[in-house]
Design a protein around this nucleic acid. Structure first.
Ligand code: MN
Ligand code: MN
Ligand code: ZN
Ligand code: ZN
Lengths: 141, 141
DNA sequence: ATGTAAATGTAACAATGTTGCATTTAATAA
DNA sequence: TTATTAAATGCAACATTGTTACATTTACAT
C-alpha cells in the first residue's frame, strides 16, 4: 500500500471526489492501516478534525465507493479502503473478498481468497454476498 | 412460529433467563415477526416501555443466545430470535443460516439453506462464519 | 482571474447508549 | 405460605454518536 500524497490524490480523482486537505488526512490514516479501523481509532489518529466534517467525509467516501463498511456481530463498525481495481501492471481475478475477525487478537482483516463456490438460495436471486468469518488469524497461530 | 405465552416462558427458562412481564412483551414482538426487526421497530411495537430496561433486556437476550444481531452494510442493526435447537420431535441438520436483504422490498430475512461448501482461508483457522446476501426475494420475483 | 457549486466550521439539536442508585420483583429456601 | 436474597426495574443524570441549518471558505472549471 502506497501512502504518498500523489497516490492518494489520484485515488480521489479516480472516484470523482474533490481533493481537500481534510480528505487527504482521512485518506492518509486509512492508507496507513492495512486492516479495517473503527471511527474511534480514526478520530484518535487525525491530528485535528471537525467531527461533523468527518461524518460527511466518511459518507462521501462510502457513497463514491472509496471505502466500505466492515460489520462483525458484537464488534463496533469499522471502515476500510476498497481494494484497487485491476490495471495494466496488476490484475486481480477470481478472488473473493472476506472479512476475518481474530478471536485472539481481536483484529479484523480484509482478505482475498480463492473464489468460494456460488451460494444458491432457492427462489431468490442473489446479486452480491458477503462473508464474515471468525477464528484465529495467521499471526496468532 | 408459536406466539403463546407458555411457549415464550419455556424459551426463557431454557436459556436460564428470569421471566418478567417486560421480557415477555419483548419476546412477543420478536416472536410475531418472522424476520429480523430494527430497534426502532421494536420500540414502536412495544405498548409501554422503559428505554434503559429495553437496552438491558436486549443485551441479556444476546448474551444468553436467545437472539442474534443481523448486520447488513448500509442498513440499521436488526435483531432476530435464534432458531430453536433440535429436539425429540424435530431435528434440523445440514443447514446453513444466511441473511438475505431484498433490494426491492428492503426486507431482511433469516434463511436456512443447504450447507455451502466449507470456506478455507490459508493459514487461518475458522471457528464460524456468516453469510449476508443481497438480491431479490421470493415475494418480489 | 473569475464564477459557481461544493465543502467546511459553527452551533444547536436529535438520537442512541451508559452508569449509579433506590425500589420492586422473581426465584429459592425455610 | 412466608421470608430471604439476588436480580431486574425505573428514574435521573450523563456520555456518545449522528443530524440539520446556514454563513463562510474553498476547489476547480471556464
Ligand atoms: Mn473488506
Ligand atoms: Mn438470522
Ligand atoms: Zn489474531
Ligand atoms: Zn423483496
Amino acid at each position: 500500500m502506497q501512502h504518498c500524497y500523489i497516490y492518494m490524490k489520484k485515488l480521489l480523482k479516480n472516484k470523482k471526489i474533490r481533493e481537500t486537505s481534510f480528505r487527504l488526512e482521512v485518506l492518509k490514516v486509512l492508507s496507513e492501516n492495512e486492516n479495517p479501523i473503527s471511527m474511534d481509532y480514526l478520530e484518535q489518529s487525525l491530528p485535528k478534525f471537525d467531527r461533523i466534517t468527518l461524518y460527511r467525509t466518511i459518507k462521501t467516501f462510502l457513497d463514491k465507493g472509496l471505502i466500505h463498511e466492515v460489520l462483525i456481530a458484537g464488534e463496533s463498525k469499522k471502515i476500510a479502503l476498497c481494494s484497487v481495481e485491476c490495471n495494466e501492471e496488476n490484475h486481480i481475478h477470481h478472488l473473493e473478498h472476506v472479512h476475518f475477525f481474530c478471536e485472539n487478537c481481536k483484529e479484523t482483516f480484509c482478505l482475498e481468497i480463492e473464489k468460494v463456490p456460488t451460494i444458491i438460495i432457492p427462489n431468490h436471486s442473489i446479486n452480491s454476498f458477503e462473508i464474515q468469518a471468525k477464528g484465529i488469524c495467521q499471526n496468532c497461530k
